[in-house]
Design a protein around this nucleic acid. Structure first.
Length: 648
RNA sequence: GCCAGUGUAGCUCAGUUGGUCAGAGCAGCUGAUUUGUAAUCAGCUGGUCGGGGGUUCGAAUCCCUCCACCGGCUCCA
């Protein structure tokens, strides 16, 4: 008999060689039906793998990430089996599960696969799943593994095996398909009830451009049809929220081939929105002691030679601009920090002056490969809400706390309530990779960790993810439909102060090197606006939206009254406009709804007589009749509630 | 950059196997209508069917090429 310890610390006895599935059955039949994988002594296992000694056991269902991962990994095998049947002789690369589903990289040897072929593959997958084939784990020697795939003439699997250690190699067999695989897998295929292949993509073998490009097929599966249907609805919703679509519809921004790809044109409404966001942040920063600066869009090559950016990125940047007479070389600025370092250097600093916080909405230009460009999230010219804090090493923690406060305030105000922070530290086994003294690194890393803890951030620590010049803290938000985005960042930098020979005079009358902190709570205005659009589906917070109110006179007769309402609202600093087209009210309402204007004020005979407005809220409907003053107060109160934290 | 897909009026899309196939709705313009909580009616203006080559008696439709857009291009068996 062996002892199995469950997560609640209860211990149950089973015969040696029992499986996780047996344990599940002993707990309840429902659990046995729903369990997908298990964790035995901390390792994710197949349900039907025998347990031969005392062990701790955790069972996973569809509700656990590990359960989904196993489900999708098994689905990848099933897809491969289906494809092998439909396209005999194809070669397989890797087929892992991913956050939403799975993919398999396949060499179709010249044949191209498109979404037209998906239906047949999907049908085949379901057909195979219904056969209820079991996944059988088999441990094989390296020689056996090589033999098998040599016979199958699959160069990719052989390439993978090459890097594996003998004795750790396993095969999984299901139906007629055998794959090199670490596992784990579902006991059998019957749980896979619904499948959707999503798209294809070219993917280089092992991600290396020098290797052959394979066809990657993405798919997702579910234990229930209904769950697939829900997922498809979610995809539809994401499409509706696509910032490129909404940006066009709401006239926020545009692109022009003539201007150049990846170079956004901010239309009046978009510029208005962006300016409001900038003002908002400027006000917050002013209170936090930031000093606004402005620097030019180009910089002499020497600046970037000093900063080190020339050496690192010179070849992959827009190429230099030359002056016609002197032949001087200028680069479009890819970062604001070198300029800010030079601003710091315009005068000597005392330890008493620090921290110095220089802020700029600085537009930078970076070359991105044409295929990498994407709406506003990946562009070649963008504006960072940049600032550089020059401080003493002992001030790093306090400055981090202050920046985190700003980020939290922004997230709260803009309704990003689900976020995590990633702390990126240096790789402790590879310290030579990094610039700066051990002492400073340790100080900075513990400052970040302590600051995050004090602010109660949900954090993940990643070792080895730090930049060579310093540790950092990145913020990831989840939007309204659950997608993750990386936004703000705070980074410590020991490199630039060194390169620009930044100094301050300490209390000991000696010269010291300040620490530099880069930070951008939004990240970039372009990216942030894109994420914001998708987060709120184009329905911006009232304080931010370009048009807050539209006045809809019932007919021409009430236009004068509409103008009077407009003037009064303007006195309350409410942004309003009048729809004076000769259209019926229903049409005007419809158009205003589609433009996502938060409030519609319908004015006609009754309202004019009583000096009131009839209020309709976007996507909610009629709110009733209010005096103009009462309405203005409601709006301003709503805005103040949203922004009130600012006053604390 | 690479692989796959798409490219028809400002927008959303029809256009059968190449032969009145250059269309519709919305938007825009003109006029009528003076309107009460998601589309008033009528008329009109919009397009070298992404660009350029080719095949053909004939191309939006077939082929080549270029351009743009779109989905991706290590979440490592």
């Amino acid at each position: 008999m062996i002892n199995i310890t469950l997560p609640d610390n209860s211990v149950r006895q089973f015969a040696e060689g029992t499986t996780s599935l047996d344990v599940a059955k002993s707990i309840s039949e429902g659990l046995a039906r729903n369990v997908l994988a298990s964790k035995v002594n901390g390792e994710v296992w197949d349900l039907n793998r025998p347990i031969n000694a005392d062990a701790s056991l955790k069972l996973f269902t569809w509700n656990d990430d590990e359960g989904k991962a196993t489900f999708w990994h098994s689905s990848a095998h099933l897809m491969a089996e289906a494809i092998e049947l439909l396209y005999p002789g194809v070669k397989f690369g890797i087929g892992p599960n991913i956050e939403n589903g799975f993919y398999y990289d396949i060499d179709f040897e010249g044949k191209s696969i498109s979404s037209d072929d998906f239906k047949a593959i999907e049908d085949k997958i379901i057909e195979l799943a219904q056969r209820k084939s079991t996944f059988n784990r088999k441990e094989v020697s390296k020689n056996e593994a090589v033999d098998y795939f040599t016979k199958k003439a699959d160069p990719y699997k052989l390439d993978l095996i090459k890097d594996l250690e003998d004795g750790t190699i396993s095969f999984y067999e299901s139906g007629n398909f055998v794959d090199l695989c670490r596992g784990p897998h579902l006991p059998d295929t019957s749980n896979i009830k619904a499948v959707k292949l999503l798209n294809t993509a070219g993917a280089y073998w092992r991600g290396d451009e020098k290797n052959k490009q394979l066809t990657r097929i993405y798919g997702i599966t579910f234990p229930k049809q209904k769950e697939l249907a829900e997922y498809l609805v979610l995809l539809e919703e994401a499409k509706k929220r696509d910032h490129r679509k909404l940006g066009k519809e709401l006239e926020l921004f545009a692109f022009s081939q003539k201007v150049g790809m990846g170079l956004p044109l901010w239309l009046p409404k978009g510029a208005d929105l962006r300016a409001r966001l900038e003002t908002f942040l400027k006000n917050v920063q002013k209170k936090a002691g930031y000093l606004q600066v402005i620097t030019p869009h180009i910089g002499n090559k020497e600046l970037y030679v000093t900063s080190g950016h020339y050496e690192k990125y010179g070849k992959d940047s827009f190429q230099p601009i030359r002056t016609p007479q002197e032949g001087e070389e200028f680069f479009l600025k890819p970062m604001n920090c070198p300029h800010h370092c030079e601003i710091y250097n315009t005068k000597p600093h005392s330890y008493k002056d620090l921290p110095v916080r220089l802020a700029e909405f600085g537009t930078v230009y970076r070359y991105e490969q044409s295929g990498e460009l994407h709406g506003l999230t990946r562009v070649r010219g963008f504006t960072q809400d940049d600032a550089h804090i020059f401080c003493r090493p002992d001030q790093v923690k306090e400055e981090f706390i202050k920046v985190i406060d700003i980020v939290l305030y922004i997230f709260k105000t803009l309704d990003f309530n689900d976020f995590t922070a990633q702390i990126s530290l240096r790789d402790p086994n590879n310290k030579e990779k990094y610039i700066g003294s051990d002492e400073n690194w340790e100080k900075a890393e513990s400052a970040i960790i302590e600051a995050s803890a004090e602010k109660g951030l949900k954090t993940v620590v990643e070792l080895g993810e730090a930049a060579f010049y310093g540790p950092k803290l990145d913020f990831m938000v989840k939007d309204a439909i659950g997608r993750k985005w990386q936004l703000g960042t705070i980074q410590v930098d020991y490199n630039l102060p060194e390169r620009f020979e930044l100094e301050y005079t300490g209390s000991d009358n000696q010269k010291h090197r300040p620490v530099m902190i880069h930070r951008a709570p939004f990240g970039s205005m372009e990216r942030f606006v894109a994420v914001l659009i998708e987060h709120c589906g184009g329905k911006f917070p009232l304080w931010l939206t370009p048009d807050q109110v539209i006045i809809l006179p019932i007919s021409e007769k009430y236009e004068n009254y509409a103008k009077k309402v407009l003037n009064l609202l303007n006195n309350y600093e409410i942004r309003a406009l009048i729809d004076d087209r000769s259209e019926k009210t229903g049409k005007k309402i419809r158009d205003a709804e589609l433009k996502k204007i938060p409030f519609m004020l319908i004015v006609g005979e009754k309202e004019e007589a009583e000096n009131t407005v009839s209020v309709r809220k976007q996507s909610e409907g009629d709110l009733g009749t209010f005096t103009i003053e009462a309405f203005a107060n409601i709006i301003n109160e709503e805005i103040n509630t949203l922004l009130q934290l600012n006053n604390k």
